[in-house]
Amino acid sequence: MKIKDIEKILKSEREAENIPDVYASAKKAPLNKLLSGETPARAFQKQVVMRLLVTALILFAVAAVCIGAMWLSKPASPTIPDCNVEVKVISGGVPTVYSIVVKNEFDIASVLKSDGKDAQEGNAEVIAPCDIEDFIVLKDGDEVFIMSKSADFDRALRVANRVLADLRYAYGDIFSAFEIGVEGE
């Protein structure tokens, strides 16, 4: 059999084939025609711009979600635990106890003045918060005991040292004894 014959037979076999008719179903597809006056290049450019815009919007949305998630998960700034300081001043054998609540770094929030026993009975005198040297009055020879308690040991120690430093600054080394106690976790 010659090659030419094979070509002829193949052609006639294929022409005898039943070709399916998909015209009606294909015609239902929308015709993406050009707008009047538009060129394929311009249509393509519009398509590219749209795709870039959509991509940019998606990236922006993803970035916004990530930043929002990071912001929400950011740990809150650590709160500074309160510190309860008891300053006992023994002056001429008479004790005076100052129960001080210190907030933030060294903000005196409240002060109760008592002889120790009255405070337990709930009869302490409330003093308006002010500088420590304004409500603790020391005289030469007084004994000073400072007890600082806080959830944070280091904070309790710092506050205690601050109280001592403020008293020393105000009164110099006039007290005959002092003791610092610190309690904390």
Partner: peptide, 25 residues
């Protein structure tokens, strides 16, 4: 495969219609 070819022929003409705007003269 006859049936696959029929489906693909339909797909080809559909794509012709939906992407005709990108055909360059």
């Amino acid at each position: 495969n006859y049936h696959t070819a029929e489906d693909m022929m339909q797909t080809a003409y559909i794509r012709l219609r939906t992407s005709i705007a990108s055909y360059k003269a």
